[in-house]
Lab assay of single mutants.
Amino acid sequence: SQTQRTQDENEARRIAEEWKRRGYDVEVRNRNGHWEVTWD
Rank of each mutant, 00 (worst) to 15 (best):
A12H: 01
E11G: 03
E9M: 05
W35G: 00
R14L: 08
G23P: 00
T3F: 10
R31G: 06
E36P: 00
T3E: 06
Q4V: 15
W35C: 02
A16Y: 08
Y24E: 02
V28C: 08
T6V: 15
V28W: 02
R31I: 15
E9H: 05
D8A: 05
E18V: 05
I15H: 02
D25Y: 11
K20E: 14
N30I: 13
R29L: 10
K20T: 09
N30W: 15
Q4N: 06
Q4Y: 14
Q4I: 15
R21V: 10
Q2M: 11
T3G: 07
V28P: 01
A16V: 04
V26I: 04
E27G: 04
E11K: 04
H34K: 09
K20A: 12
E11A: 07
W35F: 05
Y24Q: 03
V26A: 07
D25Q: 11
R29V: 13
N10F: 11
D8H: 07
T38E: 07
W39I: 14
E36T: 06
K20V: 10
H34L: 14
R29F: 09
R14C: 12
G23F: 02
Q7F: 12
T3D: 05
E11M: 07
R22D: 08
S1G: 12
V37S: 00
A12S: 03
E36F: 07
E9D: 03
R13N: 08
R14I: 07
G33D: 07
E36H: 02
E9I: 07
A16T: 03
N10P: 07
R21D: 15
Q7M: 13
R5E: 08
K20I: 13
T6F: 15
H34Q: 13
E36V: 08
Q4L: 14
D25I: 12
E11R: 05
R21Y: 06
W19E: 05
T3M: 13
R22S: 07
N32V: 04
E9R: 04
T6G: 05
D40I: 15
Q7E: 13
R13L: 10
E18S: 05
V26N: 01
A12T: 02
W19I: 13
K20R: 14
R31T: 12
V28T: 03
H34A: 12
Q4S: 08
T38Y: 13
R21L: 09
R5M: 11
